[in-house]
Amino acid sequence: MTGGDVRQWTPAGWCVLFSCDVISYGDARRTDEVQEFLREGMYRALEASFTHVGIPFGDLYLEDRGDGVISAVPAEHDPALLVTAVFDGMKVRVKRRNRLASEVAQMRLRAAVHLGVARYDGRGLVGTDVNHLCRLLDAPAFKDAIRDSDAPVALIASERFYDDVIRKDIGVIDVEEYHRLHVSFKETSCPAWIRIPPTTSIPTPP
Rank of each mutant, 00 (worst) to 15 (best):
G3T: 09
V6C: 11
V6Y: 01
V6N: 08
R7D: 07
W9P: 11
T10V: 15
P11G: 02
G13K: 08
V16D: 00
V16R: 08
F18W: 10
S19N: 11
C20A: 14
C20F: 12
C20K: 12
D21F: 11
D21M: 09
A28V: 07
R30N: 07
T31N: 08
D32N: 09
E33S: 14
Q35V: 06
Q35M: 10
G41H: 03
G41T: 06
Y43P: 06
A45Q: 04
A45E: 01
S49P: 06
S49M: 05
H52W: 05
V53T: 15
V53M: 10
F57E: 09
F57I: 14
G58F: 00
L60V: 00
L60I: 02
Y61E: 05
Y61T: 06
E63S: 01
D64Y: 05
R65H: 13
D67Q: 05
I70G: 10
A72K: 01
A75V: 07
H77N: 00
D78Q: 07
V83Y: 04
V83F: 05
T84K: 05
A85G: 11
G89P: 02
M90T: 11
K95S: 15
N98Q: 08
R99S: 14
L100C: 04
L100V: 07
A101R: 14
S102T: 08
V104W: 12
A105V: 01
A105M: 04
A105C: 00
A105D: 07
Q106W: 13
R108Y: 00
R110N: 13
R110P: 11
V113L: 04
H114S: 07
G116H: 01
R119L: 10
R119S: 10
Y120M: 02
G122C: 08
G124S: 04
L125P: 14
V126H: 04
G127Q: 06
V130W: 00
V130D: 00
L133E: 02
R135I: 06
A139D: 14
A139T: 13
P140D: 03
A141M: 12
K143Q: 02
D144I: 01
I146M: 03
R147D: 12
R147T: 05
A151Q: 09
A154N: 03
L155S: 06
I156M: 03
I156W: 12
S158G: 00
E159W: 06
E159P: 03
F161S: 03
Y162Q: 00
D164F: 11
D164A: 10
D164G: 05
V165Q: 08
I166P: 04
R167D: 15
K168G: 01
D169I: 01
G171M: 14
E176K: 08
E177G: 04
S184C: 09
F185P: 00
E187P: 06
T188N: 05
C190T: 05
P191T: 00
P191A: 06
A192E: 07
W193I: 13
P197G: 10
P198M: 04
T199E: 07
T200D: 05
S201C: 07
S201Q: 09
P203Y: 13
T204V: 10
